[in-house]
Design a protein around this nucleic acid. Structure first.
Lengths: 106, 106
DNA sequence: ACGCACCGTAAGCTAACACTTACGAACCTG
DNA sequence: CAGGTTCGTAAGTGTTAGCTTACGGTGCGT
């Protein structure tokens, strides 16, 4: 499935990719339709979709002539978990560090 | 102030920068100490810290010979808000799209 | 004052990345 | 079958991003 375990952060670091991803949260779309609303060419969108797919964030399904891309619920969950992990880890460590300024007093 | 409004994603998209940021959540540190635990040189860490600082995620304070970098609580809050905004937006749109699969044609 | 440690910045290099055009495959419609 | 879509991929290009080395500035200790 997802070839990368923690790709969410870096994958969504790109603006275009975030836009594509957000559009897909609104509705599943074909490649050409996505490209129409973007300032980049259709093959560029296709390549972004491949990256998103390899990260497990989207899934694709053939529909006759076209290919419909949609959000992958599992990938969405993993992304959520990744963000949660990062955030809680950062917050707990930060709180602990604030409440114990033991190390280095200025 | 944070020079960018949505810098969180792209700034923390880099692995080294995420590591530095997480280390700073544990305890404020000087540049050299940070560089010691990383596979990159000290100037590289310095440059990363500048990016983090411009994004409003960290603050620095001179301490004699050295310069102590620490997490910026305001930046942490803004990051939290940004992640929340992204997540809720994505989730609400996604749920709505799932409950109305009639819109597939465009 | 002298030497040493710590740090920021400039300059330059390299690899990765996002993008384009060109091409071929698969599909539907007449 | 012929023609027109839709799409993925290969090949090539320009830019950016992260990294290194080199250098200058500042503060501390002897």
């Amino acid at each position: 499935m997802a070839t990368n375990q923690l790709a969410g952060w870096s994958v969504l670091g790109d603006r275009t990719r975030r836009t594509i991803f957000e559009r897909l949260t609104n509705r599943p779309s074909a490649v050409g339709d996505l490209a129409k609303g973007l300032p980049v060419s259709r093959p560029a969108v296709s390549q972004h979709l491949r990256v998103l797919k390899e990260a497990g964030l989207v899934v694709d399904r053939p529909a006759g002539n076209r290919r419909i891309y949609a959000i992958n619920p599992d990938g969405l969950g993993e992304l959520r978990a990744e963000l949660d992990r990062f955030w809680t880890s950062a917050m707990t460590a930060y709180k602990a560090a604030v409440e114990q300024p033991d190390e280095e007093k200025t």
